[in-house]
C-alpha cells in the first residue's frame, strides 16, 4: 500500500501554510463586536488547542488517550482556585495549569503509559472519570455545585478571546517545532514500532511521558482560559464527554499526526456543531453522530491527507477500500 501525500513529519506544508493564514484571519473576529460570534470562535480555538494536545500523544506518539479531558478540567480548576485567592492574571492561570498538568501527567504516566493499545485508552478514560469524580466530592473545590468565577467586564470580554487565540497558536507552533525536532522523531518512532525504537536508543517510557505531559499542558492551558471566560465551572462542564471526544474526532477528521489537521478539524467540526445546534435544536447530536460515522467511512485518514492525493476520485475510492475486510 502506497502512502500518498506523506509530506514529511509535519504533514502537508501547503495545508500548514493555509492554516497559519486562517489563524491570522481569526485575530479579526473580535472586530465584529458580536459576543455570540466571538464565543463560537473562542470555542473553536479552545477545541483546537485540545486537539493539538491530543494529536501529540494520540497522533504522533500513537497512544490513544481518552483521558485528556482530565487535563482540561485540572487547568480550569487551577484558574478557579487562583481566582478564589484573588488572582486575576490570565498568564498566572495558564502558568499554574501547565505546571499542574505536567506534574499530573508524569505521576499518572509512569503506571499508565506502560499499558498499550486499548488498555491504555481505557486506563486514561478511567483516570479522567476518577479525577472528575474526586473533584465532585471535594468541598474545597465546590464539589458538584462548582465554583463561580469573577468575569471581566463587557469592555474586556475580548481579552479571553485573544488569550485563547494565543493558547491555540502556541499549541500549533509548539506542535510544529516539536514535530521537526529530535523529540518529534522519537514520538513517531514509538508510534511505528516501540521495540525497534528502543533498539535505536530511544527510551520509550521517557518520551511517552514527555509527549503526554506536553499534551496535558496544551489541554490544561485551554481549560485555564475557558474557566474565567465561562465565568463558572463545575465537574460536569469541565469534564464533559464532549471535551473529551470532540478533540479526538477533530484530529482524526483533519488528519492525525499532522500539524494542520487538528486546526482544520476543529474549525469544521466545531463550526458544524454550532450550526447544527442552531437549526436542529433537538436533533443536532444525532446529525453529529451521523457525521462521524460518515467521516470515518469516507475519510479514514483525514482531510489533510486529501491535500497530497493524486489521481482524483479513483484514488480516493481506492483509499476507502484499503481497510475493507
Amino acid at each position: 500500500m502506497k502512502r500518498i501525500g506523506l509530506g514529511g513529519i509535519t504533514g502537508n506544508p501547503g495545508a500548514f501554510a493555509i492554516v497559519l493564514g486562517l489563524m491570522v484571519l481569526l485575530l479579526a473576529v473580535p472586530l465584529t463586536h458580536n459576543g455570540y460570534v466571538e464565543t463560537v470562535f473562542r470555542n473553536i480555538l479552545m477545541y483546537a488547542a485540545m486537539a493539538y494536545g491530543w494529536n501529540l500523544i494520540g497522533g504522533y506518539t500513537g497512544y490513544v488517550s481518552f483521558g485528556n479531558v482530565a487535563f482540561f478540567g485540572l487547568g480550569a480548576y487551577c484558574s478557579g482556585v487562583l481566582a478564589a485567592h484573588g488572582v486575576s492574571n490570565l498568564f498566572a492561570y495558564v502558568a499554574l495549569a501547565m505546571v499542574v498538568c505536567a506534574v499530573f501527567a508524569v505521576i499518572v504516566g509512569f503506571p499508565v503509559l506502560r499499558l498499550k493499545g486499548h488498555y491504555f485508552g481505557i486506563a486514561t478514560l478511567g483516570v479522567a472519570l476518577a479525577v472528575a469524580d474526586i473533584i465532585a466530592n471535594l468541598d474545597v473545590l465546590g464539589g458538584s455545585s462548582g465554583l463561580a468565577m469573577h468575569q471581566l467586564d463587557e469592555a474586556h470580554f475580548s481579552t479571553y478571546y485573544y488569550a485563547m487565540w494565543l493558547v491555540a497558536l502556541g499549541s500549533m507552533l509548539g506542535t510544529y517545532f516539536i514535530a521537526r525536532s529530535k523529540l518529534g522523531y522519537a514520538f513517531v518512532a514509538i508510534r511505528e514500532n516501540e521495540d525497534a525504537a528502543a533498539v535505536l536508543g530511544i527510551a520509550a517510557t521517557r518520551y511517552k511521558i514527555i509527549a503526554w505531559a506536553i499534551s496535558g499542558m496544551m489541554a490544561g492551558s485551554a481549560g485555564a482560559i475557558f474557566a474565567p471566560a465561562n465565568g463558572f465551572i463545575d465537574p460536569s462542564i469541565t469534564f464533559a464527554v464532549d471535551s473529551n471526544v470532540f478533540p479526538i474526532v477533530m484530529t482524526i477528521l483533519g488528519g492525525s499526526g499532522t500539524v494542520a489537521g487538528p486546526f482544520i478539524g476543529s474549525l469544521l467540526l466545531a463550526g458544524a456543531n454550532e450550526l447544527l445546534q442552531r437549526f436542529f435544536v433537538k436533533a443536532h447530536t444525532l446529525f453529529f453522530g451521523a457525521m462521524i460515522v460518515l467521516i470515518v467511512l469516507l475519510l479514514p485518514r483525514g482531510l489533510v491527507w486529501l491535500f497530497g492525493l493524486r489521481g482524483g476520485v479513483r484514488a480516493w475510492i481506492k483509499s476507502v477500500q484499503v481497510y475493507r475486510a
Binding site: I252, K282, A283, M291, P300, V320, Q321, V322, A325
Partner: peptide
C-alpha cells in the same frame, strides 16, 4: 463496519462512538 475492519484501532473506535451518538439521540426523539 466491514469497510473499516482492517483500519487502525482508532477508526473503529470513532465509528462506534458516532454510532452510539446516533442511536442514543434517536432514542431521545
Amino acid at each position: 463496519m466491514n469497510w473499516i475492519a482492517r483500519a487502525p484501532l482508532l477508526t473503529t473506535f470513532l465509528f462506534t462512538f458516532g454510532l452510539s451518538l446516533l442511536v442514543v439521540n434517536i432514542a431521545l426523539i
